[in-house]
Structures are given as structure tokens and as C-alpha cells.
Amino acid sequence: MGQAGTPQLEHRIGGLERDYDSGHISYDPDNHARMTKARADKIAGIANDIPLQGVSLGDDHGKLAVVGWGSTFGAIHQAVKIARDEGRDVAHIHVRYLSPFPRNLGDLLKRYDRVLVPEMNNGQLVKLLRAEYLTPAESFPKVTGKPFRVTEIAQAIRKIT
């Protein structure tokens, strides 16, 4: 498609389904299926442009990975730090890209015996991880409207390790 302002290339961009080749409005069922796949592939392809998942604290393998996202970073990080000081084999992984996940996330999680997912909802990330990687990740939700305390997460880690 041409840049706006280019003669002969006038086109319309919008929310209606469009033909895979011409870009014109299309009501064809097979085209819709093809376009749905094309859009999904486009999203999935973002995984090639985002950083690989790293480990915030601890080793990239071991007994337990505590996987968090968003505002829980501080509480998880400190709890893992305390647990590691106690000699426990635990790591902190903080996911920053959720859709798509980083390409190496599935393999990374497989290198731990268990995966614990504390999050400030009723288990949204843990369900995604389980669905995406068939990993038996364990949920540690908190929906009281108050943030995690370091001791809560540290206690959960102690129960597992």
C-alpha cells in the first residue's frame, strides 16, 4: 500500500474484514479464516523482536522458579532473596512480555522442578503459562486489593522448598 498522498494508490484502512490480496472489504468465509490466521501469525511474530526471558535473581534452573509480572516485582524479589539466603534453591523470573511470550520462556520454565506464580488477580498468568506450555505451574493469587507482603511470598516459597 502506498503512503497517503500518493496518486493512484488511494485506499481505505478500517475495521472491516479485508481481502488478503487486494485489501478491499471481503465477506468471503475462507478469506476470513485466512486473514484470522494471518493476524495471529503477525502477533506471534512479535516474539522475534522482543528480548529473551532472563532470570531476575538466581539460577536458570533448579527446584523452584517464582514467576511474576507487573507490580509484584519488589515483593517477589525480596522474598526470593531471603529464601536464597536461607539456602533454598529458588529463582525469580519476571515476565514483561505477555502476548506473545518470549520465545525461550517455555524452555526456561521446564528447567525448574516447580513453578510458583504469585499475582494480584485470581490466576490469569498461571492459566496462560499452563495453556501455552503445559507446565504444572502453581497459582498463588491474592485478590484482597492489597499488595503482596514479602513475608507472604517467602512463606509460600518455604512450603515448597
Binding site: E10, R12, L16
Partner: peptide, 21 residues
């Protein structure tokens, strides 16, 4: 154009167009 069937308008013009939110 925005939302709604009237908003199909840009598709029917041979100019550039946005059918959007």
C-alpha cells in the same frame, strides 16, 4: 469515520480513508 454503519462511508470514496474508532 468512526463506529456504525454510516461509518462505512470512507470505503465508498476513491480517496484515502480511515474507518476507525
Amino acid at each position: 469515520s468512526g463506529i456504525g454503519c454510516a461509518a462505512r462511508f470512507p470505503y465508498y470514496m476513491s480517496t484515502y480513508g480511515f474507518h476507525t474508532v
